[in-house]
Nucleic acid binder design. Structure first.
Lengths: 350, 350
DNA sequence: GTTTACATCCAAAGCGCTTCGGATTACGAT
DNA sequence: ATCGTAATCCGAAGCGCTTTGGATGTAAAC
């Protein structure tokens, strides 16, 4: 038999009010009473009825995420992980995650239903577009939300995104710390946001190390395998080739890897290689490529959850931004520059 | 201002009772009144408060799915799709989907919370194991659920699974219809359920076509690339090699493909090839491999939703089983047997 | 004209929780 | 003694909906 507040309070000889307040941490109940109540509650297996509580408080104790129907590119692979991190963190606050999906054309209707029906306290907007009608919609209604991905809008709002600039900087720094001085970058066209950000990070790291980036070593390549292949060809043809290479995306990265292989390159010897996002494990390889790895979906989910909680707590939106920090994943394709490469240091004096 | 039942009924000069019953399709309200009510409701944008309704009815209007935390194999890629189909179908019945994830060690606690807290009306058990404690738990409590994947248990329960046998049969039939008579099968060890099922389907299709499977053409290969590679080697070394080949998994399939390539095989000419599950598009290929494709995640989700609805409707559990039907996805690696292969038909008479 | 049977409609009692606005008590301060 | 204060506790009024058990009126049956 399901036990409710009334039964619990009667068994304790207290009023429902007191029991309720004891359980909810109000200060106008003595500590001894509170302990008695808590004890009895767990004894009887009391679980407050969420619907009743929600009706009384007006909260829904749930947040929603509307998933674009039929979306199925690589981003989806992470979806399960994000959900995992999200629910994990939200559960700590006894908040449920409600998932809906809807075809893009009726997306706003779904939002309306969720909001007007008071089913959720806040929403997470996934896969934001540059000018996103959903965000405008939510801002107009003044409904709490967090965006997963930045967009362009005048008003402040909470968002989570990945820190591509930090990733580019990290990769470069890693190679610098290994002792490399001639570091090449193969990057995608810079009108792509991620490419521009990673490029900036790379350049920054070099400058921070007191190195002026050699324009010859920074090559723009189309976002495909051929691009990476040909760019590596150009690098290796130089009289003084770089000792390390960062490829800012893994599509060109696959091409670059192939090109290196064709020239007899072996991982760990000769040129060091870091590929942003790593090389998918489906590609048959004999080694693990060192890569800049995005945060896991779980950590993304947790970050989103924290943002939601902050939004609900009423923190100023302008402060609620989080950048997911990538990290350099250990692999076998980077190492110190080859011995002869150390001599140039001495030369640098002369 | 949020409009509630009271306001709506007052604006209509009716009682809350009548308005409620009109909206919920009771028969003791005249059709003209019902129309008036419906009209006014949409006019005022009335949305019933789900918490209040749930409190009154005792339903939660939500079903839950607990996702194993940290699971991240290929199965995950489909998770978003499944959720998509699930929520789509459930939304038609105004039922929400609650997602939780939890580490396996506290999984049952999560179930308990969800059930005792009356947060959901039913659960979906994903990634079932052969002897699944979650299923036992739910059966003991007599809580409605649907399993995504079959397991072993005495009591009947609702489940969804893929029809591997049908898939094997389909693939074989396809090759038979193209005119092949010497069809080889490379299969994984038969203690793996999927392998046994696909094997059975393959054999059945051959027998149905009046063909006795040639044991020489049915090769067991370990579940890896080498396995597929070597098996193909054996097949091609025969004095009378098969004209068609089915590989029952795409891991061995990749190896098989490589072996064929090494022997100068070209898609569409010579041996026909079907690979169960197809070849992942990440593998660089010049052609699309014909494959047996699992149903999409969306359709799986919809099937699960239907099962849940049936369970909640109280249909007998023993009837609530669904097999997801695979289909043969068109590709370029199958076709009629090469011309010389037609002669054996005449020979078959003599 | 009285009954019976329907067709419509409604008052009011919950569902289980929170919370406002006191009540009660104890106790040192005045 | 009287008052103010602080510490505890509680009665009762909701939150917005469903549903039970009639009430009312109207037409067909006797």
């Amino acid at each position: 038999m399901k036990v409710n507040l009334k039964m619990l309070s009667e068994s304790l000889g207290l009023s429902q009010t007191t029991v309720s307040r004891a359980l909810n941490g109000y200060s106008d109940v003595s500590e001894t009473t509170r302990q008695r109540v808590i004890e009895a509650a767990s004894q009887l297996g009391y679980q407050p009825n969420p619907q009743a509580r929600q009706l009384a408080t007006g909260r829904a104790d749930a947040i929603g995420i509307v998933y674009p129907f039929g979306a199925s590119d690589i981003g989806d692979m992470r979806f399960g992980e994000v959900v995992s991190g999200l629910t994990e963190r939200l559960a700590e606050h006894r908040i449920d995650l409600l998932i809906h999906s809807s075809r893009p054309d009726v997306e706003l209707d779904t939002y309306r239903r969720l909001i007007d029906g008071r089913r959720v306290d806040a929403l997470i907007v996934a896969r934001t577009r540059l000018d996103d009608p959903r965000i405008r919609f939510l801002q107009e209604r003044n409904f709490p939300f967090v965006a997963y991905g930045r967009t362009e809008t005048a008003l402040p709002y909470a968002w989570f995104d990945f820190d591509n600039e930090a990733g580019g900087r990290m990769a470069a720094r890693r190679l610098l710390e290994l002792g490399h001085r001639r570091i090449a970058l193969i990057h995608a066209p810079l009108d792509l946001t991620f490419a521009a950000q990673r490029y900036k990070g790379f350049i920054t790291a070099l400058r921070e190390a007191g190195l002026e980036p050699d324009p010859e070593l920074v090559i723009e390549a189309p976002l495909n395998r051929i691009g990476g292949y040909q760019a590596v060809g150009r690098l290796l043809a130089m009289k003084k080739p770089p000792t390390a290479l960062l490829v800012d995306n893994n599509v060109a990265g696959v091409g670059a890897l192939r090109a290196l292989g064709d020239k007899g390159w072996k991982p760990g010897s000769g040129m060091s290689l870091i590929v942003y996002d790593g090389i998918p494990s489906e590609i048959p390889l004999t080694c693990t490529v060192t890569g800049v790895l995005q945060p896991t979906g779980e950590s993304t989910g947790r970050a989103l959850a924290d943002l939601v909680l902050d939004v609900l707590a009423g923190k100023p939106l302008a402060d609620l931004h989080r950048l997911g920090q990538p990290c350099v994943g250990a692999g076998e394709t980077d190492g110190p520059p080859p011995a002869p490469a150390r001599r140039p240091r001495a030369k640098a004096l002369g």
